[in-house]
Design a protein around this nucleic acid. Sequence first.
DNA 1: TGCGGCTATTG
DNA 2: CACAATAGCCGCAG
Length: 570
Amino acid sequence: MARGDLVALAVAPDGKAGVSVPETGWVVSAEEIAAADAELRPRWATWSQESAARLAARGVRLATCWDVAAVHRLQSGGFRADPGWAWAHVKGLPLDGIPTRGPGELFGPADDDLGDEAVGPAGYLNAEWADGGWADSPARMVRWAQLALEAARIQHSKPGRDAVGEATVRSESGIELLCAELAHDGLPVSRAAAEGLLADIIGPRPRTAAEAAHARAVRDERVLRHAPAGITADLRSPLQVKSLLKAAGMDVPDTRAWRLEQFRDASPLVAALLEWRKAERIATTYGYGWLDTFLGPDGRLRGEWTGSDGAAGRMTASAGLHNMPAVLRRAVLAEDGHVFVRADLGQIEPRVLAAVSGDRALVAATAADDLYRPVAEQLSVDRPTAKVAMIAAMYGQTTGHGGQAARRMKAAYPVAMGYLDDADRRAQAGRDLRTYGGRLVRMSGGTGTGTEPAARVAGRGRYGRNAMIQGAAAELFKMWAVTVRARGAALDARIVLCLHDELLVHVPERAAGDAEKLVGDCLAETVRRWAPGSRVRFLADIAIVRCWADAKATGGTDTVTGSIGGQEGA
DNA sequence: TGCGGCTATTG
DNA sequence: CACAATAGCCGCAG
């Protein structure tokens, strides 16, 4: 067995692992997996994040893997990637024939029970095995691991991948290891700080249901006392709020905050309502219940992580980790003797557009720290207009008054705009897309009726246009993240949060400086791999902080990376 | 009880 | 207010 060789691995709920090379198989302990990983450093072929999660629970972190589910999502699109589904894809089997365990089979063996055969006569995986039965015996565990390896080999043999595609397959797999660790480790959150913030915003923790109801009523009353005499409303009902506003002389089509903002100064009712909404949001979604559910006694906030969603392939997280109100970041504090290295990519989407389209003029613009400056100059407009025009092009905005800027954008950056328009047209026509790194974005479902509403077609076009950028940006980001994970291990630097273009790394204080440099170096390494030979420049703002909220306020080290002409050092 | 609509938060 | 996501509550259908 050599470094990087594929080795089959399937970890059971009890931590025992089926391993195969594949001529020979063993069942070994998590500790033995850890030792083998350290000594031989194979690329473990696994079915999904599940194996890594079970190892992480036992303190074992693998260096690399080939994750069949992650690679399936990349190569074939969609989110579904269970073994039975991925297997049918790699084997080219009809998808409507995949066996399932019906409710009737829960109480006894099915008529077509396959017993100890992992693969049935039609070539599908045994549904009972796939449902967890694979862990029922040592022989099954080894066999199940071997099948993951077989699936991985077929995925590996798929034609049409360039070097970037190969690297993307590896990083998409590695991200699953990171996801398992993010879920296990959690985000450091100070309970005392969090409860202090909540007390300021929504009041002290209620002791009884009656106290909670009273606090709610008090909050409501602060709004309703501004209502016209005799008028009341359930503030949680948009319909009733609309009526309330009408009674107060304001006729609005809906009650969204941005629409009510114009009345804030003139109407104490609206001002109170907008404040109420902010507090209510925190009370219901990010209040004491949220802390009780997701913040462990060890001061770690835990959610589930996925390496790629069903659309363009961004990472997702539950437990509010990706949409926590900014004010609560003040409770995200490094543990004693530790600090955070916080790093975020600057203007990643237009820079990615330059890279994937190869537009020479836009590539040239990425040389600037602020890309929108040269773009504004090129278009002869001010910076805000240039930014809006660029974002409009990437998101497919059709409304508003960006006509002139859009025309100039097309003239100045014809290759980049053509790239986006092409994706838009393909998506509108229901043709599948493939991102820069090779992710299939399925567009073919639900089209072809011929009577499809124009709004739906246009929406699909915008979706496809954006998926090419958002998806490629996600691929770059994940490659950076797995590189930081790998290189940071030696410093005990652990990624504790991924936020689309931002990394939060928890690191012992003594290694802070090294980790800060490492995160920047990893970006340079990633860009060389992700955009070889490109002159596109990527930037990361990197700072050492004790509290997540401090990062932007203090203004971190402005680290500049990328900018590789040719194959320097390569 | 399930689901679409509305709303809010994040990138 | 365009692209993506998670998530809670309301109102309605079954």
